[in-house]
Design a protein around this nucleic acid. Structure first.
Length: 863
RNA sequence: GCGAGAGUGGCGGAACUGGCAGACGCGCCAGACUUAGGAUCUGGUGGGCAACCAUGGGGGUUCAACUCCCCCCUCUCGCACCA
């Protein structure tokens, strides 16, 4: 071993194996049946470059996929592009690049980057949502939903920027202003297409209880978003009118405590019922409340509850009491019926409102064994209790009374049981160019006509003038708009809105199961085999929108007979953000690290502050370019660090020293093999048999590590601890190295060493696949690692002959004894009491208690 | 305000059903090999001179608590007048 050891050259190793995998179609999915596993990472928007969030996301997925392949599963691990969306349009407006060109270049770029990461995707299944091959099925599915009444058109209000003359998505409205030009956003009524997601509200809610593989907080967020409330609708007749105010309440038990009525400022009845003498006051209040509603930045308790009397009265259907009708700023038109029965004694908002305007407070529920006094109450009593002042319902527990009161209302036809959801139907119309055309034609004679299936896809035209101004860019594309009615043949117009891009991503996981299918969006058999996705991995930011839409689509498509399962994603892993400390100059703000060499700002020379750790973002100048890291340290190091630095669900704190540590570790593994290559290629790996000393220890460590890595990956996704245990085995292998010197390759030491090294190379394969392949082939295998079986551990090898037991006296470790593994208490007690160190602590005292946990610990209580 | 999650060395983080707190890595300190080391290998590294003290704080259960129970504090995320 005189000559210098060959260096770990990540560049040539990684490019060689990537070419190898690509050349022989290494990760092409097997079509055959078998024990399947579908690993899916959320597909990216092709912005042009991958970022660290992608690196982390795909590294997690790739560990799983490669691990499961080695475990013998039939793995589906696809990748694609969520490639419609506004950035492409902005690039066109700002730089004159056609969106299609921009997008496809970005895809090509990012695909190269992903390949450089060595990810085990089956690229033959790649999909891009902006291609007609994909979006024709978007259109096809739209038509099926339309036929079932699950897609419909209605007028609704949208965010409208008067300066840009265009509609904005909610996320493009910042503090009530246009993100692009800063002018105040208005609400505008427009015809919009909707998907009737509310038809599935109950099932979407119910099935959150059938997703044990999802994080609880995601399920909670979805439940809150759906927002089911069970209660009753009650009609309050208006005095001197045939009209009634319909309210929704979850507290029918408080119906006898109603002392006034609150309507949303935009409630249609307000104008009708306001008495002439109150008109001007009400009008100015409504105007003020509307203005306030736009500026929704304030938290609810910062907004003062205000209202105005309309002059009208309505009648409590059960008591016949006459109560005044108010318009109030805290009542939402979008929820329930836009009208609320006010019970100040038992609702905090109503309480505050009543106090402010001197309205009566009537107690109808008392806490058990207590009596509330309205004149001294300081807050509403919202808990259950005993009914009072409620006629026939007095003395009932309030929880039961609610049911009884609804029964009475239903009997008298004054109300009924009712369920309200917070969830609204999904508005999918977008007045944008770079999206999937909605396949509908408007004919003056036939009305709204769906495009016949045979005419799909409705191709998105490429020669469109994009200015960023005006409604729907497609409206100006004459060739596109003007069309013959498929029904009657007369001149007609195409729908010029495109679909929300969330439609595209609501079923892409199904398309992957048969991406080339030309007769259906996906084959029923293939979907039946591969679905559901066994493990879905992505960011928490999609907790509600994407994941709810995808669940809805899955259910709707099931009811269309396209497949037969209820839920798309069996297990969900939401990975944490990638963060880094920020560097800030007191005068020049955020700086890139290289702008602050030596802790000084490069402009003014002032001392900069480092920290705190925040999510990587361009504006904070704390981004790290994955390309650079991969170039300097290699894909294996980059992957390894992003998995080692933190468990996947937690935020990851990026630091370059840590990356170097991972690089050093791979170098250590490299040398472990290369420096001992002669011995390793001659020796046969140890299997079973009696061992002692260092060989026995290393063999036990090997099997312990196999067990730990296997369990950490498959049971807990604790990749960080899996990696750390491999590091321990590497350290242990180095410890045995000196004893190998000069010994033959057929000694037990050499053979155990070989077993340890082989195991290390196989165990790091899912994390650092390139170096693993390289070392595996150097060890003499003609078969690649990805075709190897994952190593198994032998429980017998884990068993120890002797164990060292810590001995506690009164809860403090005072010594240790070594006993035979599995020794009984009597034997251990004898060993403990004959130990000199322990004797000191026990001398002259009485042993009150002796606790022995087999092979673990001794604790004695002495006094 | 409501809901969820989290507080452990200088730092990232371990500790699975209660059983030696701080695995592994970073950083730091020493030694070896070297012309040299920012390469590599080896050893050390929670605090305190010690007894002891230490897992956000305070109580409790237990032979034994980062882990279980009660109260409080802080931070992050989500929802936010939902009737």
């Amino acid at each position: 071993m005189a000559e210098k050891t060959e260096k770990y050259d990540h560049k040539s190793i990684e490019s060689r194996w990537q070419a190898e995998w690509e050349g022989n179609g290494a990760f092409r999915t097997a079509e055959g049946r078998g024990d399947k596993y579908y690993v899916l990472e959320m597909f990216p928007y092709p912005s042009g470059k991958i970022h660290m969030g992608h690196v982390r996301n795909y590294s997690i997925g790739d560990v799983l996929a490669r691990f499961l392949m080695m475990k013998g599963k039939n793995v589906l691990h696809p990748m694609g592009w969520d490639s419609f969306g506004l950035p492409a349009e902005n690039a066109a407006i700002q730089h004159g690049i056609p969106p299609a060109k921009w997008t496809h270049e970005n895809i090509a770029n990012m695909r190269t980057q992903l390949k450089r990461m060595g990810l085990s995707y089956d690229w033959t299944r790649e999909v891009a949502t902006c291609t007609p091959e994909y979006y024709r099925w978007n259109q096809w599915l739209f038509l099926r939903l339309f036929e079932k009444g699950l897609a419909y058109k209605k007028r609704s209000s949208v965010n409208w920027c008067p300066e840009c003359a265009t509609v904005l998505a909610n996320e493009q409205v910042e503090d009530g202003e246009c993100w692009r030009c800063g002018s105040t956003v208005e609400m505008k009524e427009l015809d919009q297409w909707f998907f009737r997601i509310t038809a599935y509200a109950d099932e979407l809610l119910e099935h959150t209880n059938k997703l044990p593989g999802w994080p609880e907080r995601v399920l909670t967020m979805q439940r809150n978003w759906i927002g089911k409330s069970i209660g009753a609708e009650v009609d309050f007749k208006l005095e001197g009118s045939i009209d009634a105010i319909k309210i929704f309440t979850t507290r029918p038990d408080t119906l006898f405590g109603v002392t006034f009525m609150s309507l949303a400022a935009t409630h249609p009845l307000i104008e009708k019922i306001t008495t002439p003498e109150r008109k001007s006051e009400v009008a100015s209040f409504v105007a003020k409340a509307k203005a306030e509603a736009k500026n929704a930045r304030l938290s609810p308790d910062e907004i003062v509850k205000e209202g105005v009397f309309t002059g009208a009265y309505c009648v409590n259907p059960l008591t016949g009491d006459k109560v005044p009708v108010y318009a109030a700023n805290f009542v939402l038109m979008e929820y329930g019926t836009g009208a609320v029965m006010a019970v100040p004694a038992h609702d905090q908002r109503d309480f505050e409102f009543a106090k402010k305007y001197g309205l009566p407070i009537k107690v109808v529920i008392n806490p058990q064994g207590k009596e509330l006094d309205p004149s001294t109450m300081e807050a509403a009593y919202v808990e259950p209790g005993v009914m009072v002042n409620s006629g026939a319902f007095n003395d009932l527990p309030s929880t039961g009374a609610a049911e009884a009161i609804i029964d009475a209302l239903e009997e008298q036809k004054k109300g009924k049981r009712s369920i309200t959801y917070r969830l609204r139907d999904w508005g999918i119309s977008r007045q944008r160019y770079w999206g999937c055309p909605i396949p509908v034609i408007y004919c003056d004679i036939c009305g709204t006509v769906p495009v016949p299936d045979a005419q799909l896809p409705v191709i998105l035209p490429e020669n469109v003038n994009l200015t960023g101004k005006g409604l729907s860019p497609l409206a100006g594309a004459e060739d596109f708009v003007n069309v013959k009615c498929p029904n009657c043949g007369s001149q007609a117009r195409r729908e010029t809105d495109t679909m929300d891009t969330f439609v595209d991503s609501s079923w892409y996981f199904l398309r992957y199961t048969s991406p080339k299918n030309e007769t259906l969006p996906f084959g029923k058999d293939e979907a039946g085999y591969w679905m559901p996705v066994d493990q879905y991995i992505g960011g928490i930011e999609h907790a509600v929108m994407h994941l709810l839409y995808a669940r809805f689509f899955t259910k709707a498509l099931r009811d269309l007979g396209l497949h037969e399962f209820d839920e798309p994603f069996k297990n969900l892993l939401t990975q944490g953000m990638v963060c880094k400390e920020i560097t800030k100059c007191p005068e020049h703000g955020y700086l890139y690290p290289e702008e602050a060499t030596g802790g000084k700002c490069h402009i003014c020379g002032k001392a900069v502050s480092i920290g705190p750790v925040e999510k990587m973002s361009k504006s904070k100048k704390n981004v790290i370019d994955p390309d650079r890291i991969i170039r300097e340290y290699g894909a294996d190091t980059t992957r390894l660090f992003s998995l080692f630095a933190a468990p996947p669900e937690k935020d990851l704190d990026w630091n370059e020293e840590g990356v170097e540590g991972s690089y050093r570790f791979l170098g250590r593994v490299w040398r472990l093999v290369i420096e001992n290559l002669d011995l390793l290629s001659e020796a046969k790996a140890w299997e079973t048999g009696a061992l002692d000393g260092g060989a026995r220890e290393l063999n036990a460590a090997t099997h312990r590590t196999i067990k730990k890595v296997t369990q950490d990956i498959e049971e807990r996704f604790h990749f960080n601890t899996a990696i750390s245990s491999i590091m321990e085995l590497v350290n242990a292998s180095y410890q045995l190295m000196p004893t190998l010197n000069g010994k033959g390759s057929d000694t037990a030491e050499a053979r155990v060493f070989k077993k340890a090294v082989e195991s290390i190379v196989l165990l790091i394969a899912p994390f650092a696949p390139h170096i693993s392949e390289e070392l595996w082939s150097r060890l003499g295998s003609s078969e690649p690692v990805y075709k190897m079986r994952w190593p198994l551990w032998n429980e017998d090898a884990l068993k120890l002959e002797e164990v060292e037991i810590p001995v506690q006296v009164n809860g403090k470790v005072r010594g240790r004894v070594t006993v035979a593994a599995g020794a009984d208490e009597a034997a251990v007690k004898e060993a403990v009491l004959s130990d000199d160190k322990i004797k000191e602590f026990v001398a002259g005292k009485e042993i009150k208690k002796f606790v022995y946990v087999t092979d673990k610990i001794v604790n004695m209580v002495v006094a």
